[in-house]
């Protein structure tokens, strides 16, 4: 051992002494008690393991998605809500320019949809009109429409599902309350009327579907 002098240790001695220290075999109890040390290290490793088990999320990239079980009614409500949302979007982009976002139409030009007997009648009626369009004079809520050819409605080029969605929306918006329109029914009507290229005539449809109503 080098003497503890103020002028320190020479480098040569330092290498020599520490190499010897490194070679020396140390009984594990030398210097401190082994039991508390093992206890402390053990506790640390235990705490680390708990921390890992709690916070690594099983080494997955994303946290797990919560799985929600829905009842049949909830599923049905969710389906209808989505259908109405989709219908609203289609209405806004395809129909609202004439029939107005509030469904009231424009007096003497475009008939209203809110509270209209045409809308809440047999779902075939609204489907047929969307599929092929409409011309000629009609009576809606006691008012005459379609007197000028400029107000004729042309066919709306959208598919069966979209027709079902938008009709369902119209039949249930602004205080209307009528049955849901289904995609399969729309498809049937489309095949049945496949040969027709003309718009529907207003009077014909009116007498076919609304004759029972007291519109006169």
């Amino acid at each position: 051992m080098a003497p503890a002098k103020f002028d320190g240790m020479k480098d040569d001695d330092m290498v020599e002494i520490h190499s010897n220290l490194g070679r020396e075999k140390h009984p594990p109890t030398k210097g401190f008690l082994v039991a508390p040390l093992i206890f402390v290290f053990g506790c640390l490793i235990f705490v680390c393991s708990i921390q890992l088990a709690h916070s690594t999320n099983s080494f997955q990239v994303h946290p797990p998605q919560e799985i929600v079980e829905l009842t049949e009614e909830e599923k049905e409500a969710l389906r209808l809500e989505r259908k109405l949302d989709s219908g609203k979007k289609i209405f806004t982009s395809k129909c609202a320019s004439c029939h107005q976002p509030n469904g009231l139409g424009i007096a003497t030009q475009y008939p209203p949809l809110a509270g209209s007997e045409w809308v809440s009648a047999n779902p075939e009626l609204i489907t047929k009109i969307i599929l092929k369009g409409l011309k000629g004079e009609i009576t809606v809520k006691g008012e005459k429409y379609g007197t000028s050819p400029a107000a004729n409605m042309v066919a709306v080029p959208i598919n069966d599902r979209e027709i079902a969605n938008v009709s369902t929306y119209v039949r249930n918006a602004w205080g209307n309350s009528a049955s849901e329109v289904f995609e399969s029914d729309v498809a049937d009507i489309r095949t049945n009327t496949a040969g027709q290229n003309e718009q529907w005539i207003g009077e014909a449809l009116q007498s076919e579907y609304l004759s029972g109503a007291s519109t006169e």
């Binding site: 003497p3 503890a4 002028d7 320190g8 240790m9 002494i17 520490h18 220290l21």
Partner: peptide
């Protein structure tokens, strides 16, 4: 690790 023994003249305690 170098300077402490070099200046104090003592080998590192608990060097192992």
């Amino acid at each position: 690790y170098y300077l402490i023994p070099a200046i104090t003249g003592r080998p590192i305690d608990k060097y192992y």
